[in-house]
Nucleic acid binder design. Structure first.
Lengths: 183, 183
DNA sequence: CTGGACAGGCTAACGCCGTTAGCCTAGAGT
DNA sequence: ACTCTAGGCTAACGGCGTTAGCCTGTCCAG
C-alpha cells in the first residue's frame, strides 16, 4: 500500500511486536504509541485509523506465509528423490503449519474476519494461494486442501483438540487423503 | 451449567437475537439490557460477567450443531440404499455447512478463540464430535475431516473465496477425498 | 535573514465499552 | 409485623478508538 514512510514503518514494526507478544487485543492505539514514546493521537498523523495499521500487519503476514510456502514448494521439487510419499503437498502442509504455530497471534489476526482487501497490496493474496494451486490437481481440491490447512491450524491454535492429541497424525491423514485421492 | 433461572433464560434469548442479527460485536451489555428494558448493571444480578452469557450461547450453538449432525447421520443410515456415494460423510458435511451458514454469527462466536470449557455443560463438546468419529475410520482422519469442515466454513464465512467460487465443489472434493482414501 | 508551510508532536474531550459500589423497592416467609 | 431477598436503579471508574485544535521545530523561498 503506497510505500510507508520511515516513521510509519516503525509504527508497524512496534505494532507487530505488540501483536506477537500479546495477541490482537494487546494492539491498542495507546499501547502502540507508548511503545514509541508518543501519545495515541499522534499515530493518526501516520495512519487514518487502527484498521490501516492492522492491514499492514496482515499484508506482511500474508507475504511471509507466501514466501514460506514457496520455499517448501521449491525444496520439495529439488529433493524429489527422497520424497516422503506426500508429493510436495505434505511439505506444503508442514510449512503452513510451521508458520502459523511460529506466529500464532499474527496468523489469527490475518484470519480473523473478512480480509480488508482494499487496504492490501494487490496480488499478495494470490501469491499465498499459488503454491497450493500448482501442486493440487483441480481447483475444487485445492480449495479443500486450503480449508483443511486453515481449519487444522485454527483448531490447534484454539486448543480445541484434546490435550494429548496427535495433531501431526491428523495432518498426515489429511494430506495423504488428498494425495492418494488425486492419483 | 446449573440450570438458568427464567430471567437468565430471557437474557440469553435476547443475547442470541443480538448476536444473530448483528454479530458478536453487537452483543453489548448495554444493548442487551436495553432490549430487555433494563439497565446494564442489572444484568450482573443474573450473570457474573459477559463471558458467562457468551458461554451460554456457545453451549446452545454446540448442542444445536450436535443435533443437526446427529440428524444427518441418522438420515444417512436410514436411506442408505440411495447413498450418494459419499458414505454418510457427505451428508454430515452438508449438515455442518448448513448449520454454519444458517447461523453465521453464532458459529463464529462458538469458534472464536479457545472454548470456555469450564463454563460449558459437560459432554456437549464430545456430543458434537461423535457423529464424525463414528463415521470416519481412524481418529487422525476424523480430526482431519473436522479441520476440513471448520476451515471451509470459516473461509466461506469470511468471504475468502473468490466471488464466483464453487464452494459446493470444494466440499465435494474434500469429503470424497476422505471417503475414497478410507477404502 | 526572514517568513511561511508543514511534519509531527501535544492536551482535552467525546461517546462507547465492561464493570463495581451502593441504594431502593416490592413481595415472600416467619 | 418484620425481615430477607430478588432484582431493579444511578453514579462512577478506567480503558477503548477517535476528533478537534494547538504548538513547535525544520526547511525552503524570497
Amino acid at each position: 500500500m503506497a510505500e510507508l514512510s520511515p516513521r510509519a514503518g516503525q509504527i508497524v514494526a512496534a505494532a507487530r511486536e505488540l501483536v506477537e507478544a500479546g495477541g490482537a487485543d494487546a494492539l491498542t492505539m495507546r499501547a502502540l504509541a507508548a511503545r514509541l514514546g508518543i501519545r495515541a493521537p499522534s499515530l493518526y498523523k501516520h495512519f487514518p485509523d487502527k484498521s490501516a495499521v492492522e492491514a499492514e500487519l496482515i499484508a506482511i503476514a500474508l507475504a511471509e506465509l507466501a514466501t514460506a510456502l514457496e520455499g517448501a514448494e521449491h525444496a520439495a521439487l529439488e529433493g524429489a528423490e527422497h520424497d516422503d510419499g506426500g508429493g510436495g503437498l505434505a511439505a506444503l502442509g508442514r510449512a503452513y503449519r510451521a508458520y502459523a504455530l511460529g506466529h500464532p497471534h499474527l496468523y489469527r489476526l490475518m484470519s480473523a474476519g473478512p480480509l480488508p482487501r482494499d487496504l492490501l497490496p494487490a496480488g499478495v493474496e494470490e501469491r499465498a494461494a499459488l503454491p497450493l494451486v500448482r501442486i493440487v490437481r483441480g481447483q475444487a481440491a485445492a480449495r479443500a486442501v486450503w480449508g483443511l490447512a486453515h481449519g487444522l491450524v485454527m483448531l490447534e491454535l484454539d486448543g480445541r483438540f484434546p490435550p494429548g492429541a496427535d495433531i501431526e497424525a491428523a495432518w498426515t491423514a489429511g494430506m495423504s487423503a488428498f494425495t492418494t485421492a488425486a492419483r
